[in-house]
Design a protein around this nucleic acid. Structure first.
Length: 836
RNA sequence: GCCGGGAUGGCGGAACUUGGUAGACGCAGCGGACUUAAAAUCCGCUUCUCAGCAAUGAGAGUGCCGGUUCGAGUCCGGCUCCCGGCACCA
């Protein structure tokens, strides 16, 4: 085999040509520019910003290496950062890791790896992947919540809340997950199942002594201040409003006959008070004991309570409403009527007072209950112009109406009636207007190892006291091997940790064995970035004042709406009230991103459909990855990751690269002075593109921005006369590409003689004199249907356009034998001829 | 059940909070050029139906039904389906 194989030679030649001319080498370019950005410290945020912009993307849980699904957030945050920098802002764009949490501990149990080791290794590999993508973070501010220099301040936050009366311990029925062997906050229970990690066990109720944050004290402010958050999506605000669930009504005190007891009842319908025919008490209610002691029904009630409290929430909801009579009676304060008291498990202890008044005629649940137990139904509200009959009713009438059979209130309309009844009750000191919230206090203790220890010490003499600031952090002991949950924190068994001295008296004392919910760590992380290495404070106030609030918060989806996004607002308000920060809302603008799917499912390692970043970038490059993510769908929507999207992005960059390398000599960095006739329309296209891309960058419409760039690229390819305008077009193209594909943009920029990185250059602006072409298309419609088009110069008079239109052959064809009734003319747009 | 959001070609998605050429841009597909060939690249076509050798012409078309308007993907009323949230909250 000598030179008998011309094909082989051809292939090699093609390959060489391809490498030399057609395609760029992404790996070389990318590492070169990443090095440059790092050396120049381009993304290091100043401590004294002149024109600050705090751009924050939600930090991440280090579950392993990151994949393309995670990248969407980071890429979008980076595009915005680069654009804002080029608009002249000092941008703070930090990143960090929400590093405590269950998966690390589960891994420890399964694989025998210490949670810290597992977590820190994941962070290291994820960091590497992130750097490969060329995301412009200020890495010097990176935070890792599981390290003592961070959780020291998480503990400090706890003691701050404690001192302000916002952290308290109480014995309460809590959501207990038998799988995780720990308690859950309400937000972690979905459909009665545990939503911590991938657990999904059926949640049980348990009575336990636990730590809570008194978020309910802030319910009203959390609700009201939503109105000021114009930069937040309505969907998130609506969800938060529903979650807080404010309802205004009336408290009413019912005395118990023959007992020194009374029940406070909350109702939103005091106007139905004359229709009360029974009272229902939640099975968990602490007064039941006293109520039924010695009653004929005592044993039945006790048995019912026992059964009810054993049931999970879901079981309770799914079964038919039932209850058990207590044999006791309550006295309706407004008319002295005696009504029976039931214990019923459809009544929730946590809402209102745990006792409800039963008004069967005007409440669906009470109606069902009354029918089941043969209780009387009393109509006290009639629909306007109609009279209800209790006997024949098949369902409750719940709408407002006119009060009837209600003594002096009869005839009042519901709204007025509510006020009148409330007024009357408060005059007699039997109740009055009150407000209740669905929001509950935030349960933060977890009986787990991998979290920030709760900094509380118990002493026999002095009781409970917080660990003094100077003794923080309470270090999480590392020498532990048994993470298997046994219903209490693994820390309880670590004597060197548990045994300590009382900060008050110095005697022997014990530590709280529980750790904090990870939502506590993430409630204040945005503050730590501002002053990440401060050893004396969580963040210096002057620095906080300079950077807060977050100008743009970019989040990973609506699943945080009623969790993290409420908690971090709560923390901001607490820290504001305590004088540590000046703002009481953390973020001005919020942008929620859609998830990344692969084959119709959320991309994740556990589903086996994750596309690893390192592997992808190695093959296609970071710029291709970025473009593929951005172009596929608008950022707020879900996107499907496909190989086809990758093809397009790759082709686009190669095309641009070729255009630049083929035309280096004509590329011009100045606006053309003289616009040739040949390329006037191209120049207009260039300016329109600059305008569109700029607007789209401001409003996160990255997919259409890239589409506009693609159009411009096509226009440039189609340009025959490659003059100054053409050269400027390429220059503009490179500029506009830079936030999206920064490596290749900087490379091309240097190829055409640009200095440094485009991030250091001001953003390009359009030439307003050339935004619209001198002529345009006017659509000619007949009866609203398009029949013809006219090319006319701009702002041609209506008469002239009409004349041209009536000369048009296609128009005339449709006008034949018809009467022209009128014409509608929209300048520069259309002429509609109405005929009959 | 209640509260949000959505439904546009074979596919991902455009159409500027303002009613005015629906389908930008990309992917896939088809045709052509270059090549001995292939890949890559470049140029063109590509919503559907009907008529025509053709340029082209006619009709239908943005989940369904109806309305407002000279004109509706866009506004109004009713409905179906999909996604998300809340759900015994008194």
């Amino acid at each position: 085999m000598r030179c008998r194989d011309p094909w082989g030679i051809r292939v090699i030649v093609d390959y060489v040509v391809c490498l030399a001319k057609m395609q760029f080498k992404h790996s070389e370019i990318e590492s070169k520019w990443q090095r440059y950005w790092k050396e120049r410290g381009l993304f290091k945020a100043a401590d004294d910003p002149k024109k600050k912009f705090y751009n924050l993307v939600m930090f991440a849980y280090p579950s392993g290496d990151i994949h393309m699904g995670h990248c969407k957030n980071y890429v979008i945050g980076d595009v915005y950062t680069r654009f804002k920098m080029r608009e002249g802002f000092d941008v703070l764009h930090p990143f960090g890791w929400d590093a405590f949490g269950l998966p690390a501990e589960n891994q420890a149990i399964k694989m025998g790896i210490h949670p810290e080791k597992w977590t820190l290794e994941n962070i290291r590999t994820s960091d590497e992947s992130l750097r490969l993508l060329g995301i412009g973070y200020d890495w010097e501010r990176e935070i890792i919540t599981c390290l003592p220099d961070y959780y020291r301040w998480t503990q400090w936050m706890f003691t701050l809340l404690y001192k302000r009366g916002l952290a308290y311990k109480k014995e309460a029925y809590v959501n207990w997950c038998p799988g995780c062997q720990t308690v859950l906050a309400n937000e972690q229970v979905i459909d009665g199942a545990c939503y911590r990690s991938n657990c999904r066990s059926l949640v049980e109720k348990r009575k336990l002594n636990q730590w809570f944050f008194r978020i309910t004290k802030y319910a009203d402010r959390l609700l009201k201040d939503l109105d000021g958050l114009d930069g937040w999506p309505d969907s998130v605000k609506v969800m938060q409003r529903n979650w807080i669930g404010k309802s205004e009504g009336c408290d009413i005190a019912f005395e118990i006959a023959d007992r020194k007891l009374h029940f406070k009842v909350f109702t939103t319908r005091p106007d139905t008070i004359y229709g009360v025919t029974f009272l229902s008490v939640a099975p968990e209610h602490p007064s039941i004991d006293e109520l039924v002691r010695g009653s004929a029904c005592e044993s039945e009630v006790r048995q019912y309570v026992l059964q009810a409290t054993k049931r999970s929430d879901r079981e309770r909801i799914e079964k038919e409403k039932d209850g058990v009579p207590t044999g006791c009676f309550a006295i309706n304060p407004i008319n002295g009527e005696k009504v029976p008291i039931f214990v019923a498990d459809y009544v929730l202890l946590e809402y209102g007072s745990g006792v409800v008044m039963g008004v069967p005629a005007h409440d669906a649940r009470d109606f069902q209950f009354a029918k089941k137990y043969g209780l009387p139904i009393k109509v006290v509200i009639n629909p306007p112009g109609e009279a209800l009959d209790a006997e024949s009713m098949t369902e409750a009438y719940e709408d407002p109406g006119i009060m009837v059979d209600s003594a002096e209130f009869t005839g009042l309309e519901s709204g007025e009636g509510m006020k009148a009844v409330a007024r009357s009750l408060s005059q007699k000191d039997l109740g009055g207007p009150s407000v209740h919230y669905r929001l509950k206090d935030w349960l933060i203790s977890r009986q787990r190892y991998w979290g920030a220890p709760i900094p509380i010490v118990y002493c026999e003499k002095c009781g409970m006291s917080p660990v003094p600031d100077e003794e923080l952090p309470v270090l999480l002991p590392k020498n532990i091997t048994d993470f298997i949950p046994k219903g209490r924190s693994p820390l309880a068994a670590v004597e060197s940790f548990i045994n300590t001295k009382c900060p008050e008296c110095g005697e022997k004392a014990t530590r709280d064995p529980d750790t904090m919910d990870t939502f506590v760590c993430s409630s204040w992380y945005f503050l730590r970035y501002i002053d990440a290495h401060n050893e004396r404070e969580f963040c210096a106030k002057d620095k906080a004042d300079r950077w807060l609030p977050i100008d743009q918060y970019i989040g990973g989806g609506s699943e945080h709406a009623t969790g993290h996004l409420i908690y971090f607002r709560f923390f901001s308000k607490v820290l504001h009230d305590a004088g540590y920060i000046s703002t009481d809302e953390p973020a001005v603008n919020l942008f929620n991103l859609g998830m990344v799917l692969k084959d119709g499912e959320v991309m994740s390692k556990s589903k086996g459909n994750a596309v690893p970043v390192g592997q992808f970038v190695g093959k296609h490059g970071a710029d291709v990855a970025r473009l593929a993510i951005l172009f596929a769908a608008p950022p707020e929507r879900e996107m499907e990751w496909t190989d086809e999207g990758v093809t397009g992005a790759e082709r686009f960059l190669n095309r641009l690269y070729r255009l630049v390398t083929d035309n280096v000599v004509v590329i011009a960095d100045k606006r053309p002075e003289v616009i040739s006739n040949d390329n006037e329309s191209l120049y207009i296209k260039i300016n329109q593109t600059i305008s569109k891309v700029t607007a789209d960058l401001r409003s996160f419409k990255y997919n259409t921005a890239i589409a506009a760039l693609w159009e411009l690229l096509n226009a440039l390819y189609g340009t025959r006369v490659r003059d100054h305008v053409f050269g400027y077009g390429i220059h503009a193209m490179i500029h506009m590409l830079s936030p999206f594909a920064p490596h290749i943009a900087d490379e091309l920029w240097s190829m055409v003689g640009g200095k440094g990185s485009l991030v250091e250059q001001p953003w390009i602006e359009q030439d307003d004199r050339y935004m619209r072409s001198k002529s345009g298309t006017i659509v000619i419609q007949i009866n609203g249907r398009v029949r013809s088009h006219l090319e006319v110069s701009r702002s041609m008079a209506e008469d002239e356009v009409k004349k041209l239109a009536f000369d048009d052959e296609r128009v005339n064809r449709h006008l034949e034998g018809k009467d022209i009734k009128k014409t509608i003319y929209v300048p520069d747009k259309l002429l509609n001829i109405v005929v009959q």
